[in-house]
């Protein structure tokens, strides 16, 4: 408990440092553009792949579970749509990104810490926390919503393809289901979650890296912790945000 409070306190102080005293604006712009590529663009591939397969599995599972002939078959399309939008494209994609992006950030910043590159920045009078972390936060918060939207479309497409190819559902029924009782707010809810998760992934991972001490072994541990803790915090906030936004 003591330790938890210590970490939360130090995390908050780090964030304060991240959002204070920015250096030259142009430097940030360039850094953020670079990070958009490393953090965002380079994650498109993995998001597309997992989304296709997740959409396919949801469709097939829903199809096999509908045994009662009274349940209309188009509900498969509706189920795939809502599962993707509500949970998979934001939370599951968030967890996958925590693994990919989080470990990456923690090891990058951790390496900079143990090889004194962060000290080298500080000695030049640069606010290293802000210089290293802010562009990553901005990039993730800007780009992750696009990943979520991509995941929604690709996932639903994967569901449609799996349903039609296996003959579990006809194309017309699936598409009718997709349009049936659509709640646009679900998309907004998913995007809000994504933005929060983006912030969590980058800030928690950066925290682990920034306060890493020791050598290569410690960097490895920090990167594992980054994935574990950012995943846990994501799951926690998933519950909190859902209660706040969806509870009637």
């Amino acid at each position: 408990m003591h330790l938890l409070l210590y970490h939360i306190g130090r995390y908050v102080l780090l964030l304060k440092k991240v959002f204070s005293r920015p250096e030259k604006g142009r430097v940030y712009l360039n850094q953020t553009l670079d990070e958009l590529v490393t953090i965002g663009f380079n994650s498109v591939g993995i998001v597309v792949i997992i989304s296709i397969f997740m959409g396919a599995v949801i469709t097939l599972q829903t199809a096999y579970n509908i045994e009662n002939p009274l349940i209309p078959i188009y509900l498969i399309g509706l189920g795939t749509r809502d599962s993707m939008i509500l949970e998979f494209s934001s939370t599951v994609v968030g967890l996958v990104l925590a693994g990919k992006v989080g470990s990456n950030i923690a090891s990058e910043i951790g390496t900079m810490r143990v090889t004194e590159q962060i000290d080298a920045l500080e000695i030049m009078g640069i606010n290293s926390a802000s210089f290293l972390i802010l562009p990553k936060i901005l990039a993730a918060v800007i780009f992750f919503p696009f990943l979520t939207v991509i995941s929604m479309f690709v996932g639903i497409f994967g569901g449609w393809a799996a349903g039609v190819l296996t003959g579990a559902v006809s194309s017309t029924a699936f598409i009718y289901g997709l349009q049936y009782a659509f709640v646009p707010f679900y998309v907004v809810y998913a995007l809000i979650k994504t933005i929060v998760f983006a912030f969590i992934i980058v800030s928690v991972s950066a925290y682990e890296g920034y306060y890493c001490q020791g050598g290569a072994l410690e960097v490895g541990r920090a990167s594992t912790r980054a994935v574990v803790y950012s995943s846990l915090v994501i799951l926690l906030f998933n519950v909190i945000i859902t209660q706040l936004l969806l509870a009637k």
């Binding site: 430097v27 390496t111 090889t115 004194e116 590159q117 000290d119 080298a120 030049m124 640069i126």
Partner: peptide
């Protein structure tokens, strides 16, 4: 300052490393 391990920025070339403090100051 020259650090014990050099502390060069891995993501920058040798030339960019030397230009870096000039960019800042």
């Amino acid at each position: 300052m020259v650090f014990q391990g050099g502390a060069l920025f891995d993501s920058l070339t040798v030339l960019e490393n030397v230009v870096f403090p000039l960019n800042v100051f």
